[in-house]
Simulated scan of single mutants.
Amino acid sequence: MRNAARSQVVVITGATGGVGRAVVREYARRARGVALLARGRAGLEATAKEARTAGCEALPLEVDVADEEQVSDAADEVEERLGPIDVWVNAAFTSVFAPFSQIAPEEFRRVVEVDLLGFVHGTNAALERMRPRDRGTIVQVGSALAYRGVPLQSAYCASKHAVQGFHESLRCELLHDRSGVRVTMVQLPAVNTPQFSWVLSRLPKHPQPLPPIFQPEVAARAVVHAADHPRRREHWCGGSTVGTLIANAVAPGVVDRYLARYGYAAQQADVFSDPGRPANLWAPADGASGRDYGARGVFDERSRNRSWQLWASQRHGSLAVAVVGGAALAAAAVSRRRRL
């Protein structure tokens, strides 16, 4: 699989920070070329330099994924300069941390344009080029919040719910057409990304992910694994994601009340927000400062570097064989003892 991946051309939106940046690093070690789609020039230059140092051809492109024409033009440039696109990863997003009553209509609209329509535009650009070749993979980077809304993130949750529905509809259509193009989605847990330092926030304290928190490298490994195994309709990353989705399916009303009671405090750190902090809703966070934010946020000490659930999920076939084989050996041993 690694040798095959080394010939791949991969497009990653939201490539300069957080999960997108971590995905670039994963592919830089194994793909032939990576196209980096993001808005901030400083982040693009730093990300491209990292990819090239790892031995991968990098193409940084300043793109606002909310603009369909920009996305389509970028896809044309990728194919002209790097070759046919094999994998397209939709990871770009923005958000507003505030109660719904404190989010302006234009702010809510902007989040939806990036987090939902940005995925639609990227998917459409990929499909237009993959369908005639009857091959290619599209990965939608989702979240446990695609199933379970939480307070203070109404625009983001609404967008992720919509992406989930879009993904399911598109997958059915591709199956109906017997298309060789695959689409899959990765549902992520809370991740230690720089977004909590640059997201537009009206909270009194510094926003933080709902614990437990995982490092973006864990999420990136899940995304790359999903791209390698796109026949699975969905991949879950993190035990907390599994627990959240199961709890919401079984007792959503209980989860509502739990989040109503604890969700506000759990999404705020014990430090007050800096009034001068950047906000990337309308412009890239690195635009004014020229700062490269990288993949990780400020919660390193509280973040997990691995997920046993992800490890098991990626080996579910082998583990099932091992369990069945172990059960058979145990049954044989019991039977032998009885005969003796």
Results as ranks from 00 to 15, higher is better:
9 V>T: 15
10 V>I: 05
12 I>G: 00
16 T>Q: 08
25 R>H: 10
25 R>Q: 15
27 Y>R: 09
27 Y>G: 09
27 Y>M: 09
28 A>Y: 08
28 A>D: 10
29 R>S: 12
32 R>A: 12
36 L>W: 03
42 A>K: 00
45 E>C: 07
50 E>W: 10
56 C>A: 03
56 C>Y: 05
59 L>Y: 10
61 L>Y: 07
63 V>W: 13
66 A>R: 02
73 D>R: 15
74 A>F: 09
75 A>D: 08
77 E>Y: 04
79 E>L: 06
79 E>S: 02
80 E>L: 12
82 L>I: 02
83 G>W: 07
83 G>E: 06
84 P>I: 11
84 P>T: 12
85 I>Y: 03
93 F>M: 15
95 S>K: 01
98 A>W: 02
99 P>Y: 06
99 P>C: 05
102 Q>M: 05
105 P>M: 06
109 R>S: 13
112 V>P: 05
113 E>W: 02
113 E>K: 02
115 D>N: 15
115 D>W: 13
117 L>I: 09
119 F>I: 13
120 V>G: 10
131 R>I: 14
134 D>E: 09
136 G>M: 06
137 T>I: 11
137 T>D: 08
141 V>I: 00
141 V>L: 03
144 A>Q: 12
149 G>K: 04
149 G>A: 14
152 L>D: 01
155 A>K: 00
156 Y>A: 02
163 V>E: 02
167 H>S: 11
170 L>Y: 11
170 L>E: 11
171 R>N: 07
172 C>H: 13
173 E>P: 05
175 L>C: 11
175 L>M: 11
180 G>W: 05
182 R>N: 06
187 Q>H: 14
190 A>S: 15
192 N>C: 01
193 T>R: 00
193 T>Y: 03
197 S>I: 02
200 L>Y: 06
206 H>S: 08
207 P>N: 00
210 L>I: 10
212 P>C: 03
214 F>D: 13
216 P>W: 01
216 P>L: 03
219 A>F: 05
220 A>K: 11
220 A>V: 14
221 R>D: 11
224 V>F: 07
228 D>S: 13
230 P>N: 12
234 E>D: 12
235 H>L: 06
237 C>E: 04
239 G>V: 04
239 G>Q: 01
243 G>E: 02
244 T>Q: 07
245 L>R: 12
247 A>D: 05
250 V>D: 05
259 L>F: 07
260 A>S: 13
261 R>E: 02
268 Q>C: 06
270 D>N: 13
277 R>M: 09
283 A>C: 14
283 A>I: 12
285 A>G: 03
287 G>A: 11
288 A>C: 07
293 Y>R: 02
295 A>V: 04
296 R>M: 10
298 V>T: 09
299 F>T: 00
300 D>K: 04
301 E>P: 10
309 Q>K: 05
310 L>G: 01
310 L>H: 04
310 L>R: 01
311 W>D: 06
319 L>Q: 07
320 A>V: 11
330 A>K: 08
331 A>N: 09
333 A>T: 13
335 S>Y: 13
340 L>Y: 08
